[in-house]
Simulated scan of single mutants.
Amino acid sequence: MFDHVKFGVSDYAASKAFFLKALEPLGVVAGAEGDPAYGIELCGANNASLCLFQTVDKPTPLHIAFVAATREQVNAFYRAALEAGGTSHGEPGLRPRYHANYYAAFVIGPDGHNLEAVCHAPVV
């Protein structure tokens, strides 16, 4: 849905490692990278990118939802994000208050950002 989102992080190396590991199950890979003040572009299959850069300003926590093609990708994202140092903010599962097939998992990243992987597809 977006072309790119860029936001500051307090520990560039830690955030870069966290996001690369947590988003790997969703097909996200490292793209262009400059010095930490410029940052890194993390690229997905749909040409959208998430860009991180080092800042001394305390960023306001964001909620970013990433598209997952399958429920297994949601599960893999959750496991990878926890292994990378994230904190659970909602285990993988259905969220019927959004809609009947809303399957998502939530983690809090290094700077307090609420990251979600969501699959809207029904079980086939």
Rank of each mutant, 00 (worst) to 15 (best):
L23F: 02
N46L: 05
S15F: 03
A37R: 11
A13G: 01
A17K: 02
Y38N: 15
S15M: 02
C43L: 08
E24S: 10
G34F: 06
A45V: 08
K21L: 09
G27H: 00
K16V: 13
P36M: 01
G44F: 08
L23N: 06
E24T: 15
F18S: 07
F19G: 05
L26T: 09
F18A: 04
Y38L: 15
G39N: 07
E33W: 04
E41T: 15
P36Q: 01
G27L: 03
K21P: 11
P25K: 02
A30E: 11
G34C: 05
L42N: 02
P36G: 01
D35F: 14
A17I: 12
A13D: 00
L20K: 00
L42D: 04
E41V: 15
F18V: 10
F19R: 02
L23P: 05
D35I: 14
G27N: 00
N46E: 07
A37I: 15
E41G: 12
V29C: 07
G31N: 04
A17M: 02
A17N: 07
S15Y: 00
A30C: 12
L26E: 01
A13R: 07
A14H: 06
A30R: 08
A13W: 04
A32P: 09
K21F: 03
V29P: 01
F18W: 01
L20T: 15
G44C: 11
G31Y: 03
L23G: 03
A45W: 01
E33A: 15
I40A: 12
G44Y: 09
F19I: 12
G44R: 07
L26H: 05
G44A: 08
A13F: 03
I40T: 12
V29N: 05
F19L: 05
E41M: 13
E41D: 13
E33F: 11
N47W: 14
L42C: 06
V29W: 04
G31S: 08
G27Q: 02
G34N: 06
L23H: 00
V29Y: 03
A30S: 03
G31C: 04
A32H: 10
Y38H: 13
E24Y: 10
V29I: 13
G44P: 11
Y38C: 14
S15E: 10
A22Q: 06
E41I: 14
L42T: 06
A37V: 13
V28W: 00
L20M: 05
P25I: 05
A45F: 11
L20R: 00
A14Q: 13
K16R: 07
L42K: 06
L42M: 04
E24H: 11
F18R: 00
V28A: 07
L20V: 08
S15D: 06
N46H: 09
V28I: 09
A14G: 08
E41L: 11
Y38Q: 12
G27I: 02
F18Q: 01
V29F: 02
E24D: 12
A32M: 09
P36F: 05
K16N: 10
K21Y: 03
Y38T: 14
C43E: 10
V29Q: 05
A22S: 07
G34Q: 10
Y38G: 15
G31A: 09
A17Q: 03
G27C: 01
A45G: 14
A45L: 13
E33C: 10
P36C: 12
P25V: 12
